[in-house]
């Protein structure tokens, strides 16, 4: 059984699913509780910044193929958690397993190659490069021509380049950005930049995709489009973690939700369970 880390044990699995209309219709709870393969396991992870405890003894796991929402008030440690899963920060204690293997000491770029991709809370596109080029850089770990390839332009190099461009254009279509293919990424409207980051992240063919507030700065229409895109990505079999302040998006789309507050894990469960959790309500009301 998966350790849910929750106070409340099993709920009645079969009957309650349809009872609450705000619950995610995507996944039955029975499915969530089944022994699915875990793509990510985080064990008593802690991280301090000076005197600030950004993460405090966090344990959870993410099953393959699900969307795992990560919510919590400002400064809860959500972005820090992403930075640790992507290898940017090393933990003070605890460890992270990706596909069963420890990510300790693996450099950031190697983790991307292993299948972890991310987007940033504050857009970090390559502003002077076109959208196409941005996506092509995202493909860096799946292509291999280097200095000598660039200099000699051997047939295989040109073939690789042509294929990469085709795939990049496909991805740009997939994210609905084909109008902007040859525009400088820095000139895109903010909503499009958020989508562009997803396109660039998908280009590395991840098996785990970490989205840090993808809906921030998006209007209602764009947010809906984003929701649809995330569902499409899920259908491709890509596991996602989603940090989101837009509750209707986070709750509507996640299969399970983890709540952080001041570096601690407050709760974990289905969206419906989280919405009925008193601790969570307190944390949010306390902050607001």
């Amino acid at each position: 059984m998966i350790d849910m880390g929750m106070e409340q044990p099993e709920t009645d699995k079969t009957e309650t699913v349809n009872a609450n209309d705000t619950a995610s219709p995507l996944l039955h709870e029975s499915e969530l509780h089944s022994r699915k393969e875990r793509i990510l396991e985080v064990h008593s992870l802690s991280k301090m910044f000076g005197g600030v405890t950004a993460l405090d003894d966090i344990t959870f796991s993410v099953e393959k193929g699900i969307i795992c929402g990560l919510i919590g008030p400002n400064g809860a440690g959500k972005t820090t958690l992403f930075n640790m899963i992507t290898g940017i920060y090393a933990p003070d204690s605890g460890y992270i397993l990706f596909k069963g293997k420890s990510i300790r000491k693996i450099p950031v770029h190697a983790l991307v190659k292993a299948g972890i991709a991310r987007t940033f809370q504050h857009v970090e596109l390559f502003g002077s490069m076109t959208l196409l080029e941005n996506v092509l850089v995202g493909m860096h770990v799946r292509t291999r021509s280097g200095f000598w390839g660039a200099v000699t332009r051997l047939p295989w190099v040109l073939r690789e380049e042509r294929k990469a461009r085709e795939r990049a254009e496909e991805l740009i279509n997939f994210t609905g950005l084909s109008d902007y293919t040859h525009r400088s990424a820095g000139d895109l409207p903010i909503g499009r930049q958020k989508m562009a980051e997803i396109a660039r992240a998908l280009a590395s063919e991840p098996s785990l995709l970490l989205l840090d507030e993808p809906a921030a700065g998006l209007n209602a229409v764009e947010t809906e489009a984003l929701g649809l895109l995330i569902e499409k990505v899920k259908k491709k079999g890509i596991t996602m973690m989603l940090v989101e302040h837009d509750m209707s998006l986070a709750m509507g789309i996640s299969d399970k939700v983890i709540v952080l507050d001041r570096g601690r894990k407050l709760a974990e469960g289905t969206p419906r369970e989280i919405q009925n959790n008193q601790d969570v309500m307190d944390a949010y009301l306390g902050e607001a």
């Binding site: 770029h109 940033f120 200095f147 390839g149």
Partner: peptide, 22 residues
């Protein structure tokens, strides 16, 4: 080339460049 794009990406944002696998 692929190498040059990666190089220009460092110029635009080294943090993001690393994070996408360069």
């Amino acid at each position: 080339s692929r190498m040059g794009r990666a190089l220009r990406s460092i110029h635009d944002g080294e943090k993001a460049s690393m994070a996408v696998g360069v």
